[in-house]
């Protein structure tokens, strides 16, 4: 299992448009990625409803996990996405 942490940069957290952009990027990657807050439950990162149900706010740290080989690039790209202010794009 590969794991990464990211700090959410979007000014309104991972809601609305940023959540939509993020889940679509996960879906496009074709990799099964989970997302969780520290000590929180894991949800499927390709699920917009799952992601917004976590109530992730700006500045929160989240953990992304994925199984399999060659998932490093995918996770790195997703982390860099979360660490940009998607609200401003």
């Amino acid at each position: 299992m590969t794991e990464r942490t990211a700090q959410i940069a979007s000014s309104h957290g991972l809601h609305a448009r940023p959540a939509s952009l993020f889940t679509q990027a996960v879906m496009k990657s074709g990799v099964k990625v989970n997302i969780a807050k520290p000590e929180g439950k894991q949800v499927n990162a390709a699920s917009i409803l799952g992601v917004i149900s976590l109530g992730i706010e700006s500045g929160d740290t989240v953990t992304l996990t994925a199984e399999g080989d060659n998932v490093d690039t995918v996770l790195d790209e997703l982390v860099s996405m979360l660490e940009r202010d998607l609200d401003a794009e």
């Binding site: 939509s20 889940t23 679509q24 917009i48 149900s53």
Partner: peptide
């Protein structure tokens, strides 16, 4: 398009 994603949502 956003509605279509809701129908396909894996958590749902």
């Amino acid at each position: 398009e956003a509605q279509a994603f809701m129908a396909e949502d894996p958590t749902l």
